[in-house]
Design a protein around this nucleic acid. Structure first.
Lengths: 364, 364
DNA sequence: TTGTACGCGTTATCAT
DNA sequence: ATGATAACGCGTACAA
C-alpha cells in the first residue's frame, strides 16, 4: 500500500529565457503592438507586407500568446467544462473523446470535473467550485442524484448543455439520442427475421432512458400487430436483472410458447441473457434472437457477435459541444439536439421461422 | 445520420450585473486592494478584525476571483494537462478520475487532450498545440506511436510526468506499477494452491509492460523451483492471442501433462482463456487455475470471479499528480514513483492437488 | 493602414 | 498591519 519514490534522471532544462510578447514582436518588426495584435488575430485591415513581416518575426521568436492576458482582456477562457458523474463508466471515455475532438476542432480546450461522491462533497462542489470554473460553457452529465440541485448553472453565467437522458432538467438545452426509436427498430428487425414472441429485459425502471426504451418495445410490438404479453416483460428496479429473473423470463409458459427473442435494455443485460440462454442449452441467433443497446466495444469479449443498437456517445459529445458553442457565440437561442441511434446487425438474430423452428443461418 | 435540432425552453438569465472585483470589496469594506488580496490568499499578516470584515463583504458581493487576471499576474494557470492516447480504452476513465481527484484536492483543474489520430495530426498537435497549453504541468500517457517524437516536452517549460509502462522515455519522471512483482506473486499464489504446470499467455510482446509481466512469470517459476517449459508460454505479437493459439497452449502434450493453470498477461486474455477452458469441458478454479491482470470491473460480466492482479490505475493517476505538483512547486528534483499492484483472490484458482487431481473447493 | 493611450483584475514591492 | 503604486500581456477605442 505504500509507494516507492525513487530518484530519476534529471529533467532537461527547457531554458525559457522569457516568453516573447507582442511588444517584443512589435519592436523586432518595427511596428506597433496593435498591428501585431491585428495580424495575430487574423483581422483584415493589415497591409500584406506588414502581415508577412510580423508573422515571420513571431515565428522566429517562438511567440506563444498568453492565455491569461487574453482571458483577462476578453473575458473568455477558450475552455469548456465537462461535468462527469461521480461513478466511472466505460462509456464516459467515448463522451470525453467526442467532446474533446469537437472542442479541439474549434480551438477550445476541455476541462473535466468528476463530481465528488457523497451528498456533502457534491453540495460543496456545486456551491464552491462550479461558480469559479474558468470555462466559457459547460457540458453536464447530470447523475440522478444531482437532480434536486438547482444550482447547476454556474454563477459565472456560463451556459450549460445537458448530456443526459436519465431525466431532463427544465430550461436547460440538452443532447439526447433516439432511445425509443432505436428499440422500436430493433423489434422490427426481429419481426422481419421471423421472431414473434419477443421479450424485453431491462433494469432501473423509472429512469427516463429506460422508460423510453420500454416505450420503443411497445411501439415495435404495435407496429407488427403483436400482442403485449406482460410475462414477456422484465423491468427490474435494480441496475441489472438477476440471472434468476432472466431464467424465469425465458421459460415463461405462455399459450403460444416461451419467448423466441429478447430485446435487452442495454448490452450488459444482453450479456446476462446470453449466459442464461447458453445455460438452457439454446443457441443464440437460431433458437433465440437477442438484441442489445449501446454497442459498447468491450461487450465483444463476452458475446461473439451481439446485434445491438448503437448509441452514438462520441457523436453526442461532439453535438453537445456544437450546441454549446452556438449558445456561447450567438447567445441563448437554445435548441436541443437528437443524435440518432442505428442498429448494428451481427450474429444474434439470425432468420427464424414464425412457428419457432430455427431456420438455417444465412451468411453474414 | 442527420441530427435533428429542436427549439427548447429558454435559457434562464443568470443576470450577472458585473462580477465583483477586489476593488469593489476594498471599497465596500473600507480597506485597500492589497489587504483584500492578502485576506483572500490566506496570508498571515492581517488583523483578525479586518480579515473577518473582508471575508464577510466578499461573501455578500458573491466575489469570484478572475482566473485570467491571476494567471496573468502569477504566470500560473491552476491547471494540469492530461495527454491521452488517440485510442480510447476503458481503463482511461480510472486514470482520468484518479488524476482529477488528486488535482481537485490540490485546487487544480485538469484539461484533457486526446492525441489526434494519424501521423500528421499528431505531429501538428505536438508542434502547434502542445507548446501553447495553458497548464502548469502535464501528465502524459504516451502511446507507442508517439515514442519517436522528442517534442513531448512543451516549449512552455511546463514539467511532464509520464504515465507509461510501454517503454520509458529517458529524462522524464514517470509513474509505473509493479508489473513484474505482481505476476510473480500470482504464480506464487498458484503454486501455494497446488498448481505446478503453470502456463503464461500474453500478447504485444516487446512492449515494456508485457515484458515485465513475462519476467515476473519466470521469477515465479524460479521461486518455486519449477522448470521453464517453452511450450507453456504463449506470447503473441498481436494485441490478443487467438483462440486457436490458446487451445494449443492448453492441450500441449508435455511429459508431465498439459498446463494445470494459466497466468494471463491481462484480463481480456484471461477471458479468452476462460472461454477455451469452458469449450474443452474443464472447470475453472478446479481443473485449471486462472489468474488475470488489471482487475477491470467490466470483466466481471464475462467471467464470474476472476482472480487477478489489481493494477491501481486510479492511484497511479493520483500519484502522477502528486509527483507533478512536487516538481512544479519545488523545482525539478525529479523522482519516479511505483504504485504496487495487489492480488485479488476470487474463484478461479481454487485448491488443486499437485498430481492434477482437483481438490474440493474451499470456502472463499 | 497604422500608432497612441488606456484598462482589464490581480499580486508584488515598497513604504508607512 | 496596512496602503500606494506598478506591472503582468493583451485588445480596443480613437486619433492620425
Amino acid at each position: 500500500m505504500t509507494n516507492t519514490w525513487r530518484r530519476g534522471a534529471a529533467h532537461p532544462e527547457p531554458a525559457p529565457e522569457r516568453r516573447a510578447t507582442i511588444s517584443d514582436i512589435a519592436a523586432a518588426a518595427g511596428v506597433s503592438k496593435p498591428t501585431v495584435s491585428r495580424v495575430l488575430n487574423q483581422r483584415g485591415d493589415v497591409a500584406p507586407a506588414t502581415r508577412r513581416k510580423v508573422e515571420q518575426v513571431a515565428a522566429e521568436l517562438g511567440y506563444v500568446p498568453s492565455t491569461g492576458a487574453r482571458a483577462l482582456r476578453t473575458g473568455r477562457h477558450g475552455a469548456l467544462g465537462l461535468l462527469l458523474p461521480s461513478e466511472p463508466w466505460g462509456g464516459l471515455v467515448d463522451i470525453v473523446y467526442g467532446v474533446s475532438e469537437e472542442a479541439a476542432a474549434r480551438a477550445m480546450h476541455v476541462m473535466v470535473f468528476p463530481l465528488p461522491a457523497g451528498r456533502a462533497a457534491e453540495r460543496q462542489f456545486t456551491t464552491r467550485t462550479l461558480p469559479h470554473l474558468p470555462v466559457d460553457g459547460l457540458v453536464a452529465l447530470m447523475p440522478d442524484d444531482m437532480v434536486p440541485h438547482q444550482g447547476i448553472i454556474p454563477l459565472s453565467g456560463a451556459p450549460v448543455v445537458a448530456f443526459d437522458d436519465r431525466g431532463t432538467r427544465p430550461g436547460i438545452p440538452y443532447v439526447e439520442t433516439t432511445n425509443r426509436e432505436g428499440v422500436r427498430e430493433a423489434v422490427g428487425h426481429l419481426v422481419a427475421h421471423g421472431y414473434r414472441r419477443i421479450a424485453f429485459a431491462s433494469g432501473t425502471s423509472g429512469l427516463a432512458f429506460a422508460e423510453a426504451r420500454y416505450e420503443g418495445y411497445l411501439d415495435g410490438l404495435r407496429d407488427a400487430g403483436l400482442p403485449h404479453v406482460p410475462q414477456r416483460v422484465l423491468r427490474s428496479e435494480d441496475d441489472m436483472p438477476s440471472d434468476d429473473e432472466i431464467r424465469e423470463l425465458l421459460t415463461a409458459e405462455e399459450p403460444d410458447g416461451p419467448p423466441d427473442a429478447v430485446v435487452a435494455g442495454w448490452d450488459e443485460i444482453a450479456t446476462a441473457v446470453g449466459h442464461v440462454v447458453h445455460e438452457l442449452g439454446l443457441r443464440l441467433g437460431a433458437d433465440i434472437g437477442l438484441i442489445g443497446f449501446d454497442d459498447r466495444p468491450e461487450i465483444a469479449l463476452m458475446i461473439k457477435g451481439l446485434t445491438t443498437v448503437h448509441q452514438p456517445l462520441r457523436e453526442m459529445g461532439q453535438t453537445a459541444v456544437r450546441l454549446l458553442l452556438e449558445i456561447i457565440e450567438h447567445g441563448p437561442g437554445p435548441a436541443n439536439a437528437t443524435v440518432p441511434t442505428h442498429l448494428v446487425v451481427r450474429d444474434t438474430c439470425g432468420p427464424h421461422a414464425a412457428d419457432g423452428t430455427p431456420l438455417p443461418p444465412e451468411k453474414s
